[in-house]
Simulated assay, not measured.
Amino acid sequence: MSDDTDPPRRVRMRTAAAVTAAAITVTLMAALLAAGVIAVAATGAIESPEVWRRWADVGAAFGVLSSVLSGMAFVALVATLWIQYRELNLQRTELHLQRNAIERSSEELRRSADAGMRMLHFELIKMSIDDPILADVWPDPDTAGDDRRRQLLYANLVFQHMSLSMVVGGYTDEQVRELLRYLFANPIMREYWLAPASARRRIQVPGTDPWRIGRIADDVCAEYERGAGGPAS
């Protein structure tokens, strides 16, 4: 994998380069200090003033060089700290992007799983519509007959399909409300929605998409009930 596609490796290489530069500078300073100590030891027995003047000049030169190397070491240290600061910011940004990507992936997986569960629900409803014996398994309220029950089961199928479409399409609350007003204009759709209202409220999880759509559906259905002259359920 190249450096461009491996941010952690790029961070390690840059930091290592900066640390190496600082280490080289410190090593040079240590070598200079050692050379000075050796020079002092070697000139300890010299008594000639002329020789001492020459060594004084050499010492002054070493002093200038020492100051230059000290400045270089300070610059190297500052550069190292700056590079590490930049790399830490880069790592923080990359971690933030990775976290966002994971969250988006988790949301997509959740929606995919929800769509799969709804498709299974569709199949079960269709089987109960086709076979009255299977329809008896559903805990639906008693109706006037098999035809009415088949209509309510079909209303369930229609509502689940539209609900999934709204979730996948990212509908706003107002868009959901307008679509449900269209659906609940049919009294059979309202009958389907009102029948299991208490059980539905017990099993829905607050904050989820079905819960949000369910609350709006309750409001819309209540609007129709009041408009028909009856009390809101």
Rank of each mutant, 00 (worst) to 15 (best):
G63V: 12
F122Y: 06
A73G: 05
M166W: 05
V176K: 05
G207N: 03
R181F: 09
M1Q: 00
M127F: 03
M127G: 06
Q98S: 02
R14C: 00
E178S: 10
V51H: 08
G229Y: 07
M166P: 02
D57Y: 08
R149E: 08
G170T: 12
W55Y: 14
P206D: 02
Y224P: 04
T25M: 11
D218A: 11
I133Q: 11
G36Q: 08
L124Q: 06
R181K: 08
T20F: 06
G116Q: 11
M13N: 01
L183A: 06
Y85E: 14
L109W: 05
M117V: 04
Y154R: 15
M166F: 02
S106M: 14
L28T: 01
Q98T: 08
P8S: 00
R92N: 06
L124I: 11
A73L: 13
L194M: 09
Y192V: 04
E50V: 15
G170K: 05
L95I: 05
I125Y: 02
W138Q: 12
R200W: 04
L153F: 11
M189V: 06
I203K: 12
A18Q: 11
V205P: 01
R104G: 00
A60Y: 11
D219L: 08
E174R: 07
R181E: 05
W82Y: 13
R177F: 06
K126M: 14
F74V: 15
E107M: 13
V11K: 00
D136H: 13
M117D: 14
L32S: 13
D218N: 11
A30N: 10
T93N: 09
Q175S: 04
S128L: 03
G116A: 13
Q98C: 00
D130C: 06
E178N: 06
Q204D: 09
A60S: 06
D218I: 08
S198L: 15
V137R: 13
R118H: 04
L109K: 10
V176Y: 03
R226F: 01
A79N: 12
Y85Q: 10
N186Q: 10
A45F: 08
D142K: 15
S2Y: 00
R201P: 00
L77V: 11
R200M: 14
Q151E: 12
A197R: 15
L81K: 03
T43F: 01
P49N: 04
Y154T: 15
D114I: 00
A195L: 09
D136G: 01
R150S: 02
Q98V: 01
Q204W: 05
S67I: 12
G59V: 14
S165Q: 14
A16M: 09
L28S: 01
L65M: 15
L81I: 14
S66W: 10
W138S: 05
L164M: 14
T93L: 07
R14I: 00
E50T: 15
P49G: 07
F122T: 08
R226I: 07
H96I: 05
L81M: 12
S66M: 15
Q98D: 03
T20M: 07
G170I: 05
V58I: 15
T143E: 09
E174T: 13
A39F: 02
T20K: 12
E225S: 06
M127D: 13
V78N: 08
R226S: 11
S165Y: 08
I203P: 02
D209M: 01
A35C: 03
G170Q: 08
P196W: 08
T20Q: 09
I213W: 00
G116N: 07
R149L: 15
P210W: 04
V58S: 12
E174F: 03
P132T: 08
D219S: 09
L194Y: 00
R212L: 07
A17T: 04
Y192I: 03
